[in-house]
Each structure stands twice: as C-alpha cells, then as structure tokens.
C-alpha cells in the first residue's frame, strides 16, 4: 500500500520529532557499535541526513516502526564507519571513562556487562543491541539487519551464550 506524499513542512516536523525522540537512543547505539564518542556523534548526524534523504522511501514503504527504520539506517552507517576506519586499537575501558559523567550510579557489574557487549563480534553485538537494548521484536531485528528471523535467532542464541560465558563470576542470568 502506498502512502500519500507528505508535504515538505510535515516532513520537517516528522524529522524534528524523530530527532527529539530518538537522537539519544541512536547516539548510544552508535557509540556501543563504534566505541568512539566522536564517531558516534558523526554517525548520528549521518543517520539524520540519510533519513531525510530517504523520506521518499519511508513514505513509499509501509514502515510500521519508525524507530526500527531509523536504527537500520544507523547500523548501516556504523558499518560504513567501521569499514572506513583507518586504524584502531581501542581500549574500551578508557573509552567509557572518557564519556561525560554518568547521571546514575554505575556498579562494577554494569561496566563488565557493557564491556562484554562492546567486545562481542559485530554480528552478535548487533542483535543484542537491537533485540535487548532497543527492545525490538525478533522480526524487527531481522528487518534491521537484513537477515532472516532464523539467522537472528541463531545469532541471539550464540550471543547470549557468549555473554553468559564471559560473565561467569560476574552477573548471572540463570534463574
């Protein structure tokens, strides 16, 4: 089903609303993907530029979840950044220390879990960030990463087991 074309001003209002609603969420996801605050901010900016340019696509397709559509753009942007990064050995602990001061208390196990997720291979990190951190459904996660639900399921299973192995002695999830 095709949507009616959205007039320019309404498009601007929509983008404005998205920027207000989702910028922090996209910035944090990009940061966890890229481990670099500056690059995450650039990727967030690029996400909005691409979203604006692809408004036609958004209107043509029946997008039911704006956030998932925006996260797809953000993740693809981060992939581009990763491919174009020149050289990078990242001490993620330091990267986290360099962030602006936390507004809420952080326990040692929060740091451990964050570092463990940041250290996951990209394919597993993606699904953890989308499915668990951003709260997307299995189907939405599959759409964002352009894979089947079976693939997402397989990667989630693997990612969960990697997390649990890494976190043994730290946080335990088994009931």
């Amino acid at each position: 089903m095709e949507r009616a074309a959205v007039p320019g001003m309404i498009r601007e209002q929509k983008l404005n609303q998205w920027i207000e609603d989702y910028s922090d969420s996209i910035l944090r996801t990009c940061f966890l993907y890229l481990s670099d605050q500056n690059q995450a901010e650039d990727a967030t900016q690029d996400t909005w530029i691409k979203a604006w340019k692809h408004m036609d696509d958004y209107e043509r397709k029946s997008i039911t979840n704006d956030k998932a559509w925006l996260l797809r753009i953000a993740i693809n942007t981060c992939k581009d950044y990763r491919r174009s990064a020149w050289f990078r050995h990242i001490d993620r602990n330091k990267v986290l220390d360099e962030l602006p001061s936390q507004l809420i208390a952080v326990e040692p196990e929060d740091r451990t879990l964050t570092l463990t997720i940041m250290d996951l291979p990209d394919r597993y990190k993606q699904v953890i960030l989308l499915y668990y951190f951003q709260g997307l459904t299995m189907q939405e996660t599959a759409e964002v990463i352009g894979a089947s639900q079976t693939t997402v399921q397989r990667r989630l299973k693997k990612a969960e087991s990697l997390l649990k192995v890494e976190l043994t002695g730290g946080v335990t999830y088994e009931g």
């Binding site: 910028s23 922090d24 944090r28 946080v171």
Partner: peptide, 24 residues
C-alpha cells in the same frame, strides 16, 4: 539487565538541544 547496565553506563551520553538543532 542489559538495558539497566547500558543505560547506566551511558547515562551521561546524551545529545544537547544545540546538537539536535544542528542535526536538523
């Protein structure tokens, strides 16, 4: 657990109103 830990760790990482204006 994931949402709590990541949101706590990244709670200082927010966009400012100025940044959001720039994004737009």
């Amino acid at each position: 657990q994931i949402q709590h830990s990541l949101n706590a760790e990244l709670s200082g990482l927010n966009t400012t109103s100025w940044q959001r204006d720039q994004f737009f």
